[in-house]
Design a protein around this nucleic acid. Structure first.
Length: 421
RNA sequence: GUGGGCAUAGCUCAGUUGGUUAGAGCGCUAGACUGUGGCUCUGGAGGUCGCGGGUUCGAAUCCCGUUGCCCACCCCA
C-alpha cells in the first residue's frame, strides 16, 4: 500500500453514513426548531485569531494546531474549534447590525494535532451552536436545551449534564489566588502533572483524574463561594431555570474548561462507556471574546459537540439510525438490443423521480438478480430479446417474488405507483 | 511528548516444541436444464505472514531494529 490516511484521520464509508446523517440531520432540525440559523466559516483562518481567542498558553495553541505558511508567507491555521471563526465573522461581517441575539449553528471538521485515542481524532467533526448578543441566563439555558434536545432526538439516553460557573475577570483572579494559596501547603500530595498545573493553570488542578489529587480537589475552595455579585446572580438564575425545566443536571464545582475565553457559565455533557474521552459536549459563556477579536463588546455563549463521540454513544446504546435511501428499481437486461432499451428505461425512471440503477456489465441474469437483491431494490425490471420484440418489460417485485409483464409505456408509472400486478 | 497491547487473505481469526505447495469461516466471483435474487452444493480468484536485518540446512514461528494501528496519560469535542 503506497498511501494511507494520515494518522488520526479516517474515512466515513458508505455503511457509516446512516449514523452520520442521522446526527447531522437531527441537529439541523432541532437547531431550526429553536430558530437557529446555519453559518459556515472557513476551515482555516489567520493563526493570530486562534492564538488570541483560544489563549496563547493553552495546549491547543502551544502544541496542537495545524499551522502553516501559505504561498504568500502568511501564517494560517486549520481551525481547532469553531467559536473563534464565528466571532471573527460576527465582527467582520457586522452581524451585530442584525436582530440580537443572533442564534447560529454550524457543522464541520476541526483539526488538532493530538495522539489519537478512542473518541479522539486529528480531524474530527463537531456540531457547534452559538448565541451572540445576549447576557441573559435564560439564553444560557436555551443553548443547553438545544444540546439536550439534539441528544434526545438522536435517541441517546444515558447522558449527564454538568454545570458550573467559572467567574469573570472581576472575580476569577481572586479565586485563582485563593486556590493557589490553598494548594501551596499541599504540593507534596499532588502528582507531577498537578505540580505543573499549579504553576501554569491552577484551575486545572480541580479536574485531575488521579485519586489522590481528586481527594484534595474535593476539599479545595469552590469558585461558587468566590463569585462576584453579578456572576453569582447569573448562576443562580440559570440554576433556577434549569430546576424549572425539570431536566436532571449536576452542579460540578470541579468543572473547568481549557480555553481562556470562558466566563460565567460552563457546561459539559458526559457519556458513559465510550472510553476515557467521554465529554460529548462542552461549552460555556464567553462575554469578552468578540471584543477581543475586534468586534463590539458583545456577550455570547455556545457549545461544541463531537459527532464521533455522539455516534460512539449511539452504538453503545444500540440506537439504529434510519436507513439511507436505496434505489427503488434495478434494471436487468439480456443482450445488446435490450441493453440499449434498458439505458433509456433507467433514465425515464430517474426522470420520473424513481431511483434506478443497473449493472451495465453484461453479466448473467442470475448475477444481475443477485445485485438487485443486495442493493435492496424493491423492483427488478427485466428486459430481454423477447420483451424488446413485444414492447413490454417484466416487472418483478422482489419482496414476494411475483412478476408480471407490463407494456413498456406503462412500466414507469406502474413501478412508481406500485401497481405491478 | 510518556506508557501498555496488537500486527497472518477484503473481514474475523487458526497455525502445534522453527520443518515441505500458509489454512478456516464470512465476503467476492463463476457454475449446478443454456432468461431470474435471498437457501444449498461445487469450483475459482485473493496473502512478499507490517517492514528491514540476524540466527539456522530451514523462520509466520526465535533475536534485534523499525513502522503502523489500538488503548491510556496529558489535553480536549
Amino acid at each position: 500500500m503506497n498511501y494511507r490516511a494520515p494518522r488520526g484521520t479516517y474515512d466515513i464509508l458508505p455503511e457509516d453514513q446512516a449514523h452520520w446523517r442521522h446526527v447531522t440531520e437531527t441537529t439541523r432540525r432541532v437547531c431550526e426548531l429553536f430558530g437557529y440559523e446555519q453559518i459556515d466559516v472557513p476551515v482555516f483562518e489567520q493563526t493570530g485569531l486562534f492564538e488570541r481567542s483560544v489563549g496563547e498558553s493553552t495546549d491547543i495553541v502551544e502544541k496542537e494546531m495545524y499551522t502553516f505558511l501559505d504561498r504568500n508567507e502568511e501564517r494560517m491555521t486549520l481551525r481547532p474549534e469553531f467559536t473563534a471563526g464565528i466571532c471573527r465573522a460576527y465582527a467582520e461581517r457586522k452581524l451585530h447590525g442584525r436582530p440580537q441575539p443572533l442564534r447560529l449553528f454550524t457543522i464541520g471538521p476541526a483539526f488538532r494535532y493530538e495522539r489519537p485515542q478512542a473518541g479522539r481524532y486529528r480531524q474530527f467533526y463537531q456540531i457547534d451552536v452559538e448565541v451572540l448578543g445576549s447576557q441573559d441566563p435564560a439564553i444560557d439555558l436555551e443553548v443547553m436545551q438545544v444540546a439536550w434536545q439534539i441528544y434526545e432526538a438522536v435517541g441517546i439516553k444515558n447522558l449527564s449534564f454538568q454545570v458550573n460557573s467559572t467567574g469573570c475577570p472581576v472575580c476569577r483572579p481572586g479565586y485563582v489566588e485563593k486556590l493557589r494559596a490553598w494548594y501551596a501547603d499541599r504540593l507534596d500530595g499532588i502528582c507531577a502533572d498537578c505540580a505543573r498545573r499549579y504553576e501554569q493553570n491552577p484551575l486545572r488542578l480541580l479536574d485531575c483524574k488521579k485519586e489522590a489529587c481528586r481527594a484534595i480537589a474535593d476539599e479545595a475552595p469552590r469558585i461558587a463561594d468566590s463569585l462576584c455579585d453579578e456572576c453569582r446572580t447569573h448562576f443562580d438564575r440559570l440554576r433556577s431555570y434549569l430546576d424549572d425545566l425539570g431536566r436532571p443536571y449536576e452542579v460540578n464545582h470541579r468543572l473547568v474548561r481549557g480555553f481562556d475565553y470562558y466566563t460565567k457559565t460552563v457546561f459539559e455533557v458526559w457519556a458513559e462507556g465510550i472510553g476515557a474521552q467521554n465529554a460529548v459536549c462542552g461549552g460555556g459563556r464567553y462575554d469578552g471574546l468578540i471584543g477581543m477579536v475586534g468586534g463590539p463588546e458583545t456577550p455570547a455563549i455556545g457549545f461544541a459537540s463531537g459527532i464521533e463521540r455522539i455516534i460512539l454513544t449511539m452504538k453503545q446504546e444500540g440506537i439504529e439510525p434510519p436507513g439511507v435511501p436505496k434505489p427503488r428499481v434495478f434494471v436487468a437486461y439480456l443482450g445488446a438490443e435490450a441493453k440499449s432499451a434498458a439505458v433509456v428505461l433507467a433514465q425515464e425512471l430517474r426522470a420520473a423521480g424513481v431511483g434506478a440503477t443497473a449493472l451495465w456489465e453484461d453479466r448473467s441474469l442470475k448475477a444481475q438478480m443477485r445485485q438487485a437483491d443486495r442493493l435492496g431494490a424493491a423492483y427488478t425490471l427485466i428486459i430481454g430479446e423477447e420483451e424488446v420484440r413485444n414492447g413490454v418489460v417484466m416487472i418483478r417485485r422482489m419482496a414476494d417474488s411475483t412478476q408480471a409483464s407490463v407494456p413498456r409505456s406503462e412500466a414507469v408509472a406502474a413501478v412508481k405507483e406500485g401497481n405491478t400486478q
